[in-house]
């Protein structure tokens, strides 16, 4: 396993190219086509996972930073603009931030970017809580829904 995710992705893409060449040479009518499809599928999965690792490496720090910012902003707003109704939005945003802080990249292929989207939505909702009060919860909820939809299996 190459240490650099970029190098690993390039590596995987290279071996996928080799597998695809064999698949194309065989053609759909040949008897070992199903075996080749299975082998190529393994290569494709490996490429997708390698890409996820690249994304994870790229997005871990921004996700953590946004989650920290969201938590800090929620605290400041809870104290400075205290309102019982707004607390709902702030609590949900803090919960999302906690989840992203614990695991900023996730495991499924599309997790890293989906988490970025969710935590960004939480940050926006937190910042909009003073004017929108509890209604800002909807923005966080939309972010979480997006996240769940993207990473569904």
């Amino acid at each position: 396993m190459a240490a650099d995710p970029f190098a690993r992705l390039a590596d995987r893409q290279q071996s996928l190219r080799t597998a695809l060449r064999a698949l194309q040479a065989a053609g759909p009518g040949s008897p070992d086509f199903p075996t080749l499809i299975a082998r190529t599928n393994d290569e494709v999965e490996a490429v997708i996972n390698a890409r996820r690792d690249v994304e994870a490496a790229r997005l871990t720090t921004p996700n953590r930073a946004i989650a920290t910012a969201t938590t800090a902003a929620a605290l400041i707003i809870a104290v400075g603009w205290f309102d019982a109704w707004s607390l709902l939005s702030l609590l949900l945003a803090t919960a999302t931030a906690a989840a992203v802080l614990v695991d900023p990249a996730g495991r499924t292929p599309w997790d890293p970017r989906a988490r970025t989207a969710a935590i960004t939505a939480a940050l926006v909702a937190t910042l909009l809580t003073p004017p929108l009060n509890g209604w800002a919860t909807l923005i966080t909820a939309a972010g979480i829904a997006w996240w769940a939809w993207r990473t569904r299996t």
Partner: peptide
């Protein structure tokens, strides 16, 4: 499918929607 897999071999890693489509 083979064409799609072919494009997976040279996509930049951050073009997520293309990755999803071809996958």
């Amino acid at each position: 499918a083979i064409e799609a897999a072919e494009s997976l071999t040279h996509l930049p890693p951050n073009a997520e929607s293309l990755w999803r489509k071809h996958y």
